[in-house]
Amino acid sequence: MTAQPRFPAASRLLHWLMAPMIIAMLFIGVGMAASVSRHYDLLVSIHRPLGIAILGLCVARIVNRFINPPPDLPDTVPSLQRFAAKASHIALYALILVMPLVGWGMLSAARYPIVLYGPVQLPPILPHDLTLYAWLRDLHSVLAYLLFATFLAHFGAALYHGLIRRDGVFGSMASWKSMQFARTNRALIQNSTQTPEP
């Protein structure tokens, strides 16, 4: 009966800052790509800067992961699930790093100005090339659907840990308060004499 340690505070902060941003990006993306309404322009103008913010935060998150390594999963998690967890985390990191780069790259290849806000623009990172644009635009969609699927699996797994297994994995990311919620079973929590961290 060991307590499942939590992710370091910086990791939790980054995770929960970025989670809503990424989910919003997926919804904004498919919403605008299926719209010719007034919302199209507004959504695109949010999509660009928000995506670039995710790129910046993702780099910060990767650096943070080296400084603040994540806790190990509890021993009770079977090895196949361990592997799935690890692989899906790598996939999530890779996708949120590559998605904004593909977005920036495709707008560069199409020679759209990459406006973040008002006069603030990013320079193009690729040569002006229609075929390259077409390829990246399709890639942007494919990776977005892949990201959505991976996120869904991740969300499902998190809920499974939180509601079914109750092995502290959910709390290791989702609890702000204390180690209390991160015990391997409820009885332990109820009997715990530990005082919560501030």
Binding site: L26, V30, G31, A34, G156, L159, I164
Partner: peptide
């Protein structure tokens, strides 16, 4: 378990709705 399934389904449904897949009447690109 049912609750987890319901949450997954609603998220997927909301995504599909936003993407216009459930609204043949919507004027899309």
């Amino acid at each position: 378990l049912g609750a987890i399934g319901a949450v997954m389904l609603s998220v997927t449904g909301a995504f599909a709705y936003t993407g216009g897949w459930l609204s043949p009447e919507r004027l899309t690109q």
